[in-house]
Amino acid sequence: MSQLIAFWSILMKDMKNYYLKPPNISWGIIFPLSWTLMLFVRSGSPVDIREILPGVMALSILFGTTSMLAVTITFERKSRSFERLLLAPISLNLLMLAKTTGAILFGVLNAFVPVLFASFLIDLSGIHWVTAFSGVLLIAVTSTFLGLFIAVSVSEVFEAQTFSNFFRFPMMFLCGLFIPVSSLPALLQPLSYLLPLTYGADILKQSINENGFLPAPLSFSVLLAFSLALFTISLRNIKKRWIY
C-alpha cells in the first residue's frame, strides 16, 4: 500500500509540475496541426487526413514523450531533487515506472489530439480502435523508455535534447511514415527494421487504413521487446551511474 501511495504521488506530482503545464498542453495541440499543415504544403493539394493520421499520431507521441522525460529527469538530476526519490524507501523499478507513467500518459493524450481534430473533419468509422489504442500505448511506452535511456546517458538538459534528436530524426524518416520501407534504398531498409517506430507506425497504419505491411502480432512483440530492453538497460545504467 505504501509503495502505491508513493507511486501515485510521484505520478501526480510530475503530471502537475511538468506535463499539464500550459506550454506542454499548447505543444500537444500545435504539434499535430503543424505536421498536418506541413504535409499539406508538401503535397500541394488537399491532404487525405485519414492517410496522414497514423504518421501525425506516431510523431506526436515520439516527440512528446522522449524529450519530455529526458528533460524532466535531467532537470531533476541537476537540481538534485531526484536524489530525494532515490533515497526514498521505494524500489528503483517502481520509482522509474512512476516517473515514466506520466510521460506515457502524456504521449497517449498527445496521440489523440489529432484524432479529435480529425473527428470534426472526416468520417473515422472503420478504424479498429482497440488495435489503434494498443499501438498508441506501446509506442508511448517504447518512446518513453527511450527517453529514460537518454536521460540516464546525459548530464545536462541541452544534451538530453540533442541526444533525443539523434534517435528521433532517423526514426522519423526511416519508419515508413513518409516513404514506405519497401521504397527506401536497399542499404537503409535493414536499418528501418531496427527502429521501434517502424513497428508502431505499421500498427497504426493497419488499424486506421488497413495498409500495414507487417503482421500485427510481430509488431506488438517487437515493441514489447524494445520496451523491455530499454527499461532493463536504463535501470542497469541507473544502478551503475546514479547509485554509484
Binding site: 505504501s2 501511495i5 504521488s9 509540475n17 538534485r80 531533487s81 536524489e83 530525494r84 524507501p89 521505494i90
Partner: peptide, 27 residues
Amino acid sequence: IVPDESNLYEDMSGFDNLVFCASLYGM
C-alpha cells in the same frame, strides 16, 4: 536525509513539498 543543498521542488509550495515527501514514505 538532509543534503548539503536544499533540493526540494522549486515550483511547489512549502506545504506541498512536505506532503509530497511524506507520501514517499507511504503516509
